[in-house]
Design a protein around this nucleic acid. Sequence first.
DNA 1: TAATATTAGTTAGTCAGCTAACTATAAGGC
DNA 2: GCCTTATAGTTAGCTGACTAACTAATATTA
Lengths: 166, 166
Amino acid sequence: MQVFPGRETFEELERDFPDFDAESVETCLAFLNSATEVYTAFDAHFDRYGLSAGKFTLLMQLYVANQGLVPSEFAERANVTRATITGLLDGLERENLVQRQPHPSDRRMLTVHLTERGNALLENILPDHFCRTKKLMANLTTKEKKTLVNLLQKLNSGTSALSDAS
Amino acid sequence: MQVFPGRETFEELERDFPDFDAESVETCLAFLNSATEVYTAFDAHFDRYGLSAGKFTLLMQLYVANQGLVPSEFAERANVTRATITGLLDGLERENLVQRQPHPSDRRMLTVHLTERGNALLENILPDHFCRTKKLMANLTTKEKKTLVNLLQKLNSGTSALSDAS
DNA sequence: TAATATTAGTTAGTCAGCTAACTATAAGGC
DNA sequence: GCCTTATAGTTAGCTGACTAACTAATATTA
């Protein structure tokens, strides 16, 4: 969901609400709209390989760990609930990309392993993935990338203003 | 879903994939993680009022239009499908915040109207909403906001590299 | 003007996130 | 050593996004 208010909207809200700050709202909307655009583009990218961003992330963790990992670890590292991981693993296992195995020492846990097929899919994707990611950022110079990261950090530190109790 | 790869991961991928560009990946992940953080904070914010970002956006369109609007218009302006709008309207109508009415001249269409209750809710939210939005952006100077918008634009123009056919 | 194509809204079904509640197991405290 | 508490994974049900297919109504055009 994106929003592109017209000039008149800004003028009206500025008139009626003392705390309305056009510059802040404009920047905020530009950020949110940009996020939607980038997310959508990544979805289209992963969709070519039958994956989603979440599934790809999971597979990558297994790929770089080069060993079985525990679902609750995924959840914690990715900042999502265990229930979300269960769902993603169900999908990945259905497509034969990962396999759940009992944990050797704690029967509450599982270990998740990349299958041959999962490994092959990843190795097929990664060159294209990194190439496209590089191109995605190609309009920004090194200095601009650093600036962007810095500004995003400042933005992040403001999020408590939204989520804090009134 | 967020991702925070360790230094070793970067080194390994850099070694194994010629197109892996650490600087691009790092910036890209910073952006995606930041987007998740901001979205989550907005969700928490709107949740206080029993709303979601999508529902708020719909209500705002009606508020500033100051007249009934047509669902397909919403869909087009917000870049979502008509089906998504149907779902949001179902929720908003259930909570008595908007009302569907037959379109006067085209019987395929509806017009959607803000109810008294919807209007009252919005006028209750908006001061807090704009105040928090201002605070969200308060760590960025005017110049930094302009820079951010500019960099986001450059990022947007790279998204075709992700979504274009190989 | 009758047939065809397009548009608007809904419906059904999928996905990925969430919360809350449940089961099984493990760990701690008395 | 038992009781309580905490942890891990799953399940059920919600939301907001999607696509595809459907109905009804309007527009186009042959």
